[in-house]
Simulated assay, not measured.
Amino acid sequence: MNDLLPLFPLDLVLFPETPLPLHIFEPRYKEMVGECLREKSPFGMVRSNGRTLANAGCTAEIVDLLRTYPDGRMDILTMGRQRFEIIEVNDERSFFRGQVEPFSDDEAALPAPPELRTSTLEMHGELTKLASIEQVQFEEEHPLLSFQLASNLPVDLDFKQTLLEMRSERERLKVLLDYYSKVIPKLQAMMFGKKKAGGNGWVH
């Protein structure tokens, strides 16, 4: 990308091919989103803790303008598209813009074997059921299955940022599988404890 990419710093992580609804209310971001709508161009979602920006983010394409308000606020639906690294940040306008370098998974990275995809999907389903997270159907052969799964999890943002920056689907799925392997037994123990407490020590 030769042009400067408008940047939207928020304390969240957007993954490619995942949706993100946004309520736009700050004047500088109303200006930024307005330009993107007119030019049919993306902006960059980048994680920020209020003081610093992450080194990598994901472009957001505005796929629907859901609602406009008399004071200029907007509800929009975006879709994550292309990951990028920030080379340099430009602060000449009211909102940040960045010189960025797009990146994808390494071509030399080993593909994720079918059994890894199946195991990760199964454990994801088990975790979401235990945690009472909305069940979502996923395509097992989706090339970015790991991002689809991670976007459905209320996990630590550092964990999500690490996944975003990894350049191998195989390695991302292995990291997720390891996460499920550690968290599921803890959730099962919690459920067991609740059943005992609710039944005076007896499991129903």
Rank of each mutant, 00 (worst) to 15 (best):
P6G: 11
P6C: 12
L12A: 01
V13I: 06
P16R: 06
L20V: 02
L20N: 03
P21H: 00
L22E: 08
I24T: 02
I24R: 02
F25N: 03
F25Y: 06
R28P: 09
R28L: 11
E31L: 13
G34R: 06
C36L: 06
K40Q: 15
P42E: 03
G50P: 01
T59G: 05
T59H: 04
E61N: 14
Y69T: 06
D71K: 09
R73K: 15
M74I: 01
I76Y: 02
I76D: 02
G80Y: 02
F84W: 05
E85S: 14
I86W: 08
V89L: 13
R93C: 02
R93P: 00
S94M: 13
F95M: 11
G98R: 07
V100N: 04
F103L: 05
F103E: 08
D105F: 03
A108N: 04
L110Y: 01
P113N: 09
P114H: 10
T118V: 13
S119N: 13
M123C: 01
H124G: 02
G125H: 12
L127A: 01
L127W: 10
S132H: 14
I133V: 14
I133A: 04
Q137V: 02
E140K: 07
E141R: 12
H142D: 06
P143K: 06
Q148Y: 04
S151I: 00
N152C: 11
L157H: 03
D158P: 00
F159G: 04
Q161R: 04
T162A: 15
T162N: 14
M166N: 05
M166L: 09
R167L: 10
R170D: 12
R170C: 14
R170S: 11
R172V: 01
R172W: 06
V175Q: 14
V175C: 07
L176A: 10
Y179Q: 08
V183C: 08
I184W: 10
I184Q: 11
A189M: 13
G193E: 14
G198M: 14
W202T: 09
